[in-house]
Structure formats: C-alpha cells, structure tokens
Design a protein around this nucleic acid. Structure first.
Lengths: 151, 151
DNA sequence: ACGTCAAGGTTGACGCATCAACTAATCTGG
DNA sequence: CCAGATTAGTTGATGCGTCAACCTTGACGT
C-alpha cells in the first residue's frame, strides 16, 4: 500500500517539478542580468534594507535564517568580489558588521528590479488572485506545520 | 513603484520560506533514516522503477531532467559508495548502463517508504483535498508558463 | 567511403550548503 | 573576581550543481 493517494502523488510531482524549474529560471535570469547568485541577492537585499546599508552579521543571519557557517562563507566570497566590506562590531567584539560597497548597493537595486519583474512575469501574471491567495494560505499552513513539529 | 503588489509579495515570501524549510526537513529526515541525499534518492527510485533495476544513462538523464555532467558526477559518487554499478551499453558504445546493487535496491525501497511518509505527514495531512488540488493546478500552470517561454 | 557535425559521457574548476572542530569574547553563578 | 558554560564567527572537509572543455562514437550529406 502506497503512502500517498493518486491525487496526492500528482500534487507532489507537479510541485517538485515546478519548484525545480522555477528556481532554475529565476536564478539563471538573475545571473544573466546582474552576475549575482540567489545567495548574493538575498544578502544584498537584506543588508540594503537596513539604515546606512549596514547590519551586524548576527542580525543578518537571523533575518535570513541561515546557518552561521553558511553566512560566513558567503560573506567571504562577496567581500572578495567587492560587494561588501566587513568591519568590527562595537557592542560585541566577537561580532562583525557588514556594509555594502557602492557597487553592492547599486547591484542590490538593479537585481531587485530584475528579480521582482521575473517573479511577476513567471508567477503572478499566470495566476488568478484567488490562486495567489491559495498559494499564500497553503504555504503558511505548511510552514506552521514544520515550525510546530520542530519546535 | 514596486513590481509586486502586497498580496503578491506576501505570496512569494511565504512560498519561498515554505520551499526552503520543507526541502530542509525532508532532506534531513531522509538522511537520518537512510544516509541518502535527495539526489541519491531520486536516482535510486528512478532506476528501481525499471525492469531489472537497470537503465541507460541517457534515459535516466531524460527522466530526471538532469544535466549530463550532473548525472555523471552523481553516478560516480554513488558507484563509489556501492549503490550502483556501471556497465557498457550494447546499442550505442558511447553510452553506459546503470544497475542497482543489492544494497541500492534495498535502500531505494526503504527510502521511498520514509520519504512518502514524510511527505504525507508534513504536507498532505495538513491540507484539504481542495488545497491539494489547488497546489496541483497552480504548479501545473507555472510549469506550463516556464515551458512555453523557454521553448 | 569520407568529412563533418552532433550526441553520450567524463573531467576539472568553481560556487553553494552543511557539518564538525576551533578561536575568542561574553555571560553567569558562586 | 574567577571558572565554566554560551555565543559570534571562522575554517576545512565533503557533497551537490553548473559550466566549459574535452574525447569518443554514431549519423548524415555528398
């Protein structure tokens, strides 16, 4: 006896295919338009949302919900490419602060435009408002489910 | 002017968070239960569905919709860990055939049980049949959209 | 036949993600 | 004030995914 019914398996299969293809095209378009990866993009946008384009690593990490080593590796690569700089943190000398370079700031804006446009084009323009609401609701339910069972 | 309206941005944000967390927990549970990655799992299941647990690399690649180098790297790792073997292909001497080892076959079944149960537990048990149908429909629409614009 | 081109597959390099081990600074109980 | 436990962040190893370069073999037009 299978664990999933036919409609359930169909839902899972199409979700999986969609998920893979969608993040594929979005990542590819972002890279083509700006040279950034999705990881770069997430960091740039998160930092750019802060006053002075500066944020402490810890706050960034919590906002992104990333592992600390992941953020550390990512910031190292971004620093090498001149997207950010890192400076000491006053309140806690263990910590560090991340600041966008001029180039980082510029790319953050550019990338956001491209990315949002792509999301609109591939996703939002294809769905009815009801479907968009359904997607929000479904995602919220599943998120809650995961949070609860892993609390 | 933002490219996305508020409900659209909300939908995208919750979808993204859900997507990341869901594949996180599923991958983690699979690894904990069987020691397999999701990539391993996909390959094992795809091969296990074939008669004789054997399939040509090309067919596998098309079924999975993977890049050829990705499959090659993955098969190398799986061969090293004793999950599959590779042999020459009769019809086309450029090609190669993939066969499950006894251990691969066993793990494929084991993993499928665990994985399907986890999908049921995290996803299907949380959603109404209408929501499951909505998810199928939405995914199908987005898939079509991507296929059409990239044809 | 034969030359050219396309296709199947491998390889190496690089970025991304996770895990475990480590350093250094802060917090906390006594 | 100090010893032990936490916490911020780094590092190295390893697996995953993509790209570009490459090799071999088959396909096809002439």
């Amino acid at each position: 006896m299978a664990a999933l019914t036919d409609p359930q398996a169909a839902a899972w299969n199409s979700y999986q295919r969609m998920r893979v293809r969608l993040s594929g095209v979005l990542g590819r378009e972002l890279a083509a338009a700006t040279g950034l990866s999705e990881a770069d993009f997430e960091v740039l946008v998160a930092v750019n949302e802060r006053p002075d384009d500066t944020v402490r690593s810890l706050a960034l990490r919590c906002g992104l919900e990333w592992e600390k080593s992941r953020l550390s590796h990512q910031l190292r690569r971004m620093e090498q490419r001149g997207l950010i700089t890192r400076e000491a943190c006053e309140e806690d000398s263990r910590g560090s602060a991340v600041r966008l370079t001029a180039r980082g700031r510029e790319l953050a804006c550019e990338a956001r435009k491209h990315y949002d446009a792509a999301v609109k084009r591939y996703v939002m323009d294809s769905l009815t408002p009801e479907q968009i609401a359904a997607l929000t609701e479904i995602s919220g339910i599943l998120l809650d489910r995961i949070e609860i069972t892993h609390k």
